[in-house]
């Protein structure tokens, strides 16, 4: 490489490196705000302000879903395998909502320590599988 080209190469490397550091530091400073949701333990430990709109993510505890008989109101417990919290929601739940499914609820903490959600989103993972395989895996897990 000629000295001139070498110089241009270094300038470009410095540019990319500099931009990387600048963005990296910004991301680091904002890291808590970039998270889409709080974990249920954080909420239960009082690390989140009461009365402000937040998102909480966790697994729906098995057997905790209680539907109201005369309205769309539903109560369920959410856990990150640490401390669980109770969520109350009125409305239509997404198709993927079920027990032991990861979900994200948006809403506010009320005075009684119940999370009043106005939006519930279902989270799924990248482990796609056909129904038959899921069924046989479930059987295997149960027979253990």
């Amino acid at each position: 490489m000629t000295p001139k080209r070498k110089k241009r190469l270094y300038i470009i490397l410095a540019l990319v490196f500099g931009a990387g550091i600048a963005v990296g530091l910004t991301m680091y400073a904002l890291s808590q705000n970039i998270n889409l949701f709080y974990s249920t333990s954080q909420v239960a430990n009082g690390e989140v302000p009461i009365g402000t709109r937040i998102r909480v993510g966790g697994m729906v505890v098995k057997g905790s879903v209680k539907r109201s008989k005369d309205s769309l109101q539903v109560n369920f417990d959410l856990t990150d395998y640490g401390k669980p919290i109770t969520v109350s929601y009125t409305g239509i739940l997404p198709d993927l909502f079920r027990e032991e499914q990861g979900i994200i609820a948006q809403g506010k903490m009320d005075d009684q320590g119940i999370f009043q959600a106005d939006e519930v989103l279902a989270k799924h993972d990248e482990n796609y599988m056909p129904p038959e395989i899921a069924e046989s895996m479930k059987k295997k897990a149960e027979s253990k």
Partner: peptide, 23 residues
């Protein structure tokens, strides 16, 4: 790096894909 609603990567270079071959 962060908690996201989006699921993890479908294909990773280092691991086998987390789904059966016919998928």
């Amino acid at each position: 790096w962060w908690n996201t609603l989006h699921q993890g990567a479908t294909f990773k270079i280092t691991e086998k894909p987390a789904m059966p071959p016919d998928m």
